[in-house]
Every structure is written in structure tokens, then in C-alpha cells.
Simulated scan of single mutants.
Amino acid sequence: MGAAKLNIKLICFFIIGIMAFQSVWTVCLFANNDNDENLLNSDIRITIKETNLVKQSQVFLGDISEIQANGFLKEALAKIVVSSSPKPDQIKSFDKKKIISIIRGQRYLPDNIIMISPRRIYVKRLGQVISKQDVRQFVEQYLSQIFKNQDYQLKTFNVRGLETYPQGKLQFCPDSDDMLDKHGKLSFYLDVVIDGNKEDRLSVSGLVALYDNVLHTTRSYAKGETISKETVCLKKENVFEIGRTGIKTFEEISHKILNYSVRKGDILKTNFFADPPLIQKGDIITLVARNNNLEIITSGISKEDGFENELIKVESLSSGKLVRGIVKGKSRVEVAY
């Protein structure tokens, strides 16, 4: 009686052992011939791995197995598509029956194939992480080409849409060469290209400062006055904030008059200044009168300021009469009839 119980226990352990083995490895012999010797002498043997890492968007049989086959059959088997890959850094699983069905569907294969496979196969797709700093470096390089030898700063920077991407050669492709507006605002879309394939589009934004020396006043001036060289100084300013009309050298405003009053410390801009009139009120001028072939030259006093080709009033010193004339140069007016 004791021996019978012992035999039953041994049989149970044996059955459990077989079931445990089959839960991990299953030998699939699919053939039309039931001859065991023919199967054992098979030229094709496929051993499927339980866990696998892949790079591409599709899972090939060669990615998840070790294939023993002769000649071009091994290459053909390796290129059989088993499934689509999961997203980068994600895991996907499928049943061994799916692989058996796919291989059986290859009509060019011989009947005597041995395949060893676990019940489920797991595939993880390798990925690469693109950081905000990676995108910033690309933008910084772009800005360095635009602002060669200039003092600039990427003050704020933001990227939206970053994910984990497939492994491969990475390229960034902006949707436009016009990334900056006149106020220094950075705004554009950036395509993420892996091995020549567009994988994603990122939204990039930020703010750029461009610094340059511009003239400031060290005292106040009234409208119509001329600024002296001793009362200006150079300070760095953000060109995108003040506009590109800031005065950089005193020669740009030398002998010009102010259109507006300015206060101490003000930034000087080109629209603040105008050329002085060729003739100012009270100037002694040469007055020229022409009539046919006759030309009369006399002196006069300007009664108002006048720019070139502008009509002004002049008092003739010889007759005391007021006449209207056209400014033709510094201190020269031609009588208008």
C-alpha cells in the first residue's frame, strides 16, 4: 500500500515537471510527414527568444529568434514580419501561435521545420530621449550664425511636444528660416527627423536680446538745440527693445538739431534729429533775380528759416521790399515770379 502511494506521488511530480517545462518551451513540429527521423534531420531550426529588444518600427523573425537554415533560406526567414513594434521604450507581447501561423503561411518553406518557442514572446522597442537642452543647443547654434560677432542672449526658452523617440540618426528641421520677429520673439515649429523619417513636430518659443552700444545724453536739451559731443555717452541696450534706430556714433548727429526735447539719460534715436535749415531767420543772404537774359544780384535778410528748394520771405536791403524766393543753397535765394 505504501509503495503504491509512493508511485502515485512520483507520477504526479513527473507530470508537474513536464507541465512546467512546457510552460516555458514548446517544440512545434509542423510537417506533413509523421516520420520522426525526417523531423530530427530537419535543415531548418528556429529558436524563439522570450524577451527581445528591437529598434525598427516592425518586428522581424530575425529580431526575436536564432535561425539555423541553409543558404538564402536563413536570410528570407529573418526578414519575415512578425508584428508592428510598440512605441519607443514600450513593451508588446504576442502568442507563439501567431508566429506559427505566419511561418506556415510562407509557402516556399519545406515541411520539416523545427521551432522552439515560449508560450508568449515579449518585445521592447529601444528609444532615445531628446531633452529641452538638446533643442536649445540647436537654437543657440542657429542664433550664433545669425548674430556673428554680436552680443546676444537667449533670455527665455520653451519647447512643447517632447516624447521618447526611436533610436537612429537625429536631425532637427525648422519649418521656416524666419524664426525671429523684429522684437526678438522666437516662435517656430521644429520637425524631429530620425534616419530620414519625420517622427514628430515640436513647438519652440522664447525671447532673444541683442545688445549694442547706443548714445545717451548726460543732460537735458530743448527742441531745436544742437547736442554737443561732451554731453553724450555710450551704453549697452537691447536693440530689440529700443528698436534699431539708436544712434551709435556722434558723427550721425553732428550739427543736427533736435525735433524733440530730451531729458538727461535718454537714448538718442535717429528720428529725434533733423538737418538744420540752410538759411535761418535773420541771416544775410544773396538775393538773385532773373528776367530773360538779365540777372540782378543784391543782398537781403531772411525773414524765416528755409530748407533747400523751400519758398521763404526775404527783405531786399536795397529796396526794403519783401519778396518770396526759393532757397538754392546756403545763403542763396532766387526770387520767385
Results as ranks from 00 to 15, higher is better:
Gln128Asn: 09
Pro110Gly: 09
Ile116Gly: 00
Phe72His: 13
Thr218Leu: 08
Gly325Met: 06
Pro174Asn: 11
Pro166Asn: 03
Arg45Asn: 09
Ala20Pro: 03
Ser318Leu: 15
Ile242Val: 13
Gly2Asp: 10
Asn197Arg: 11
Arg45Ala: 05
Asn291Lys: 14
Ala209Pro: 01
Ile48Gln: 03
Thr218Gln: 07
Ile301Met: 12
Arg104Gly: 15
Ser203Lys: 04
Ile121His: 07
Gly62Gln: 13
Ile247Lys: 08
Leu207Asn: 13
Lys132His: 11
Glu304Phe: 02
Val262Pro: 02
Leu6Tyr: 08
Phe13Pro: 01
Tyr221His: 07
Glu163Gln: 11
Lys269Asp: 01
Ala222Cys: 06
Lys169Ile: 14
Ile67Ser: 06
Ile91Lys: 14
Leu207Ser: 11
Glu225Arg: 00
Gly325Ser: 08
Ile11Gly: 02
Pro166Gln: 03
Ser316His: 00
Lys330Glu: 11
Gly168Asp: 04
Glu310Ile: 06
Met179His: 07
Gly168Val: 08
Ala31Phe: 01
Tyr337Asp: 09
Lys5His: 13
Ala76Gln: 15
Val214Met: 10
Phe240Tyr: 15
Val193Ile: 15
Ile8Arg: 13
Cys173Glu: 01
Gly224Lys: 08
Asn149Pro: 08
Tyr337Thr: 04
Cys233Leu: 07
Trp25Phe: 14
Gly196Leu: 09
Pro276Trp: 01
Gln141Met: 13
Leu53Thr: 08
Leu126Tyr: 00
Lys92Cys: 01
Ser131Asn: 09
Val323Leu: 09
Thr270Gln: 05
Gly329Trp: 09
Ser299Asp: 10
Lys328Tyr: 11
Asp283Tyr: 05
Glu163Pro: 00
Lys55Val: 07
Gly246Trp: 07
Val139Pro: 13
Ser254Cys: 06
Ile253Lys: 01
Ser316Glu: 02
Leu10His: 02
Ala336Pro: 00
Arg125Trp: 09
Asn197Met: 08
Asp181Asn: 15
Leu294Ser: 13
Leu210Ile: 02
Asn33Pro: 08
Ala20Thr: 10
Val123Ala: 02
Ser254Leu: 07
Ile46Glu: 00
Leu215Ala: 04
Glu304Asn: 02
Val314Ala: 08
His216Ser: 01
Phe157Trp: 14
Asp266Ala: 15
Thr231Asn: 12
Lys49Cys: 00
Ile301Cys: 13
Ser203Trp: 07
Val54Pro: 05
Ile284Met: 11
His183Thr: 07
Leu29Asp: 09
Thr298Phe: 04
Ile194Cys: 06
Ile11Phe: 06
Ile113Tyr: 04
Leu77Met: 10
Val232Met: 01
Thr298Lys: 05
Leu73Glu: 13
Val159His: 02
Ile99Ala: 08
Phe72Met: 14
Leu294Trp: 12
Lys96Met: 12
Leu287Asp: 12
Ser319Gln: 08
Leu278Val: 04
Lys235Val: 11
Gly2Met: 10
Ile67Gly: 05
Leu77Ala: 04
Gly224Tyr: 09
His183Gly: 03
Leu202Phe: 00
Lys55Pro: 00
Phe240Trp: 12
Leu109Asn: 06
Ser220Tyr: 04
Asp275Asn: 11
Asn7Asp: 14
Thr298Gln: 10
Pro174Asp: 07
Ser261Cys: 06
His183Ile: 05
Gly184Arg: 01
His183Met: 03
Asn32Gly: 15
